[in-house]
C-alpha cells in the first residue's frame, strides 16, 4: 500500500476581529506535526475561505473564531463548500464557543470544535485519527 498523501489543511481566520494568536499557534503546530498548512491571514469572509480551500485543494479547514459570530460563520463556510461541490472538505474549529452551540454546529456538519485549554497535541491527534486525504 502506498503511503498516505500528506494532509493539506487550511487554517482560516474569518470575521472582523484580529485575535490570531490561536490560529498562528495551531498553524505552526500542524506544520511541525508534518501537515501541509496554508494560513489565510485575517479578516476573511466565508466566500474568501471557501475559494481558498478549493484553489488550494485542501482536505480540511480549521476555523478560528473568538468573536461570538460562530453561529453565522461556520454554517456559511459549510454551505459555500457544498454549493461549490467541495462538501467533503472537513471543517473543524476552535474558539470561544458555548457547549450548546457546539452541539448544534456539529449537527450541521462541523466535525469538531476545540475550546480554550485544548493542547496542540490534542488537536494534532484528533486530525490524525479523523481526517483522511480526500479522494481524487
Amino acid at each position: 500500500m502506498p503511503p498516505a498523501r500528506t494532509l493539506r489543511i487550511l487554517v482560516a481566520k474569518p470575521g472582523l476581529d484580529g485575535h490570531d494568536r490561536g490560529a498562528k499557534i495551531i498553524a505552526r503546530a500542524l506544520r511541525d506535526a508534518g501537515f501541509e498548512v496554508i494560513y489565510t491571514g485575517l479578516h476573511q469572509t466565508p466566500e474568501m475561505i471557501a475559494e481558498t480551500a478549493i484553489q488550494e485543494d485542501v482536505d480540511a479547514i480549521g476555523l478560528s473564531i473568538l468573536s461570538g459570530a460562530h453561529n453565522t460563520l461556520f454554517p456559511a463556510v459549510l454551505r459555500l463548500l457544498r454549493e461549490k461541490g467541495a462538501g467533503d472538505v472537513a471543517i473543524f474549529g476552535g474558539g470561544i464557543v458555548p457547549p450548546e452551540d457546539i452541539a448544534r454546529l456539529k449537527a450541521e456538519g462541523v466535525r469538531e470544535i476545540f475550546t480554550p485549554g485544548a493542547s496542540t497535541d490534542d488537536i494534532v491527534g484528533w486530525i490524525r485519527a479523523n481526517i483522511a486525504p480526500r479522494g481524487d
Binding site: 470575521g15 472582523l16 476581529d17 479578516h43 469572509t45 468573536s67 461570538g68 459570530a69 453561529n71 453565522t72 460563520l73
Partner: peptide, 22 residues
C-alpha cells in the same frame, strides 16, 4: 463591537453576525 471597531455600520454585509457581540 467589531463592526464599529473596524469602521462598518451595523447594516453592512461584513457586520453580519457581529453586531453587539463583543
Amino acid at each position: 463591537d467589531m463592526p464599529t471597531l473596524m469602521g462598518y455600520d451595523a447594516d453592512h454585509p461584513r457586520a453580519l453576525g457581529e453586531v453587539g457581540r463583543e
